[in-house]
Structures are given as C-alpha cells and as structure tokens.
Design a protein around this nucleic acid. Structure first.
Lengths: 135, 135
DNA sequence: CTATTTGTAACCATTATAGTTACAAATAAA
DNA sequence: TTTATTTGTAACTATAATGGTTACAAATAG
C-alpha cells in the first residue's frame, strides 16, 4: 500500500483551505494531525514545489495556490509520492526462458492499465469534494 | 507501490499454465525468475490456498486449479497481497479539530473509490490474456 | 529404502516510512 | 536594531515489510 504521505497531504490542504485567510502555521496543522511540525513542513515543501500552495517565512503567507476546485487528488498524489509503478516488477528474469524473456513487457502493460485507471479516478476528485465531505 | 509478490505470482501462474501437463517444479520456476525456490513455494502456497493451483509432494501434481480464462488478476492479487487499504490513513488525528475528527471517513471514501476501480480493472484481466501477451 | 519435492520455519540485509531534534534563514514586530 | 516567530532542510532513529536464503520434516515415487 502507499504511504500516508498522500492522505496526510489532503489533510494539510483541507486545513489550509478552511483557514480561509486566517493565518495558519505548520505547528497548528500538526496539532490537527497529532504529529510533528517538521513532518508537515516536509510535505508542505513538496506541495509548494508542485504549485499547490504558497508559503513563506511570515505569518499569513500560507494559502492555496489555486481554488480548491482546481486541485485534483491526482496532482496531490504526484506531488508527494515517489515516481514508481503501482506494482513492483522483478527485473532480473531469465532471458533464456520464453516466459522470463517476455513477461516484463506484459506486466508493464498490466501496470499501465491499472495505473491509468487510478489516475483517472484521482483526477476526478478535487479538494473541493473533500471539503464538501468534511461538512 | 505494491511488492513484486503479485507480479511474480503472475509469472509463476504463466509458467504452470504453459507447462501444460509436463511436470514442473518450484525449482524450475525459480530458474525462470532467477530467484530462490523457497520463495516460489511460499507464493505457491498462497496460490494454492486461494484455489488457483494444485500442488502436492509428487512429480507432476502441480497445475492450474481451473482454466486460465477463469483466473482473474483480481483473484491473484487478493491471494498474495496483504489485506490493506490502497492508501495508508493516519488514524491518530485530533478529534477536537473539525477536520481531524472527520477527515478519516472522507479519506476512507476516497480510498474505496480508487480501490474498487483497481479491482474492476484487475477483474477484467485474466491469466489467459497474460498468456496471449506472452506469445 | 533412496531420491525428490513440497511446505514451512527461521534468519538476515535492505529499504522506505514516520517521527524527531536541531538550526540557519527570512520576516514581522518591539 | 533586537527579539520572536516561522519556514525550510538536514540529520538521525526506530519500525516494519520485502526479498532472499538456509534448513529440514513430511510426503511420495521409484
């Protein structure tokens, strides 16, 4: 399974979205997640690099970089999860075996099919939907 | 990302399917994957428990438990991967915060949506399709 | 009764995560 | 200018799962 980085990031984005102008700090967000502010800042740093939020070393600078309707979970996922295939594929197969020689391509194809479905689903859900669900 | 247990299992099933009557051992399959036979047997044990293959301590007893057209990748996945959610969800949130109190349910819902899409895709692919791709 | 193979237990090394401490740099406010 | 606050990041630790390996009892064929 994927790490909690993705879901914690959604939590962070929700907190920021709902702060709505009022100054919000990594310390405060950490309080809602019951964890460390450095961990939050680490994720916020990635979210900033992906242009999902704005931050600065000053009070009140933290906010969404665009409306919650325009932030899809696909973007959030890609911002914080390492670039990997969904299923690990054993690379060192025996090329002298007909199956070993060809299975890699077949499995990569399976992976792509599933992964594009996941991306499609995540693309269809936006931060605004999450906020709606939180009401 | 998920471990290679799933994709290695597909490799194993393909080897068994293509052995087609001819005796096949875990040692032989391990040779195609370039790994250890105990590791293969560990996975085969799970595949057997899921009624996907038949095995016995005798030569020639290893085979598919049903036609390759009736073995979906969804079954294979469930046979070897631990029962988990696709995305880890941080459980210990602050219940005194409106977001912390409700985000868990919202995230579980997101998880279910994605996971059922994955399952749908995996259900639509069968071992027979893999064998076709190997040709 | 010998050889082969399965099924499983018990390890070990590696890797990523989650959590933590610490601190320089930026900025606001006194 | 000085002080306090906050970000951004580095460094470190503990934990857990994977992937690989050795070993061996039990089952079975010859």
């Amino acid at each position: 399974m994927y790490s909690s980085k993705f879901t914690v990031s959604i939590h962070i984005l929700s907190m920021i979205a709902l702060s709505d102008g009022k100054p919000i700090t990594s310390e405060y967000i950490a309080g809602s997640i019951n964890t460390n502010s450095a961990l939050i800042r680490r994720l916020m740093s990635l979210l900033k690099k992906a242009d999902l939020i704005t931050t600065q070393t000053k009070v009140g600078a933290t906010g969404l970089a665009k409306p919650s309707e325009q932030i899809s979970l696909s973007e959030v996922f890609k911002a914080v999860e390492r670039e990997t295939t969904l299923f690990a594929i054993h690379e060192d197969t025996n090329r002298d075996c007909p199956v070993g020689a060809r299975i890699g391509k077949v499995l990569a194809n399976v992976n792509d099919q599933v992964q594009s479905q996941v991306d499609l689903t995540l693309s269809s859900i936006h931060l605004s939907d999450i906020l709606e669900g939180l009401k």
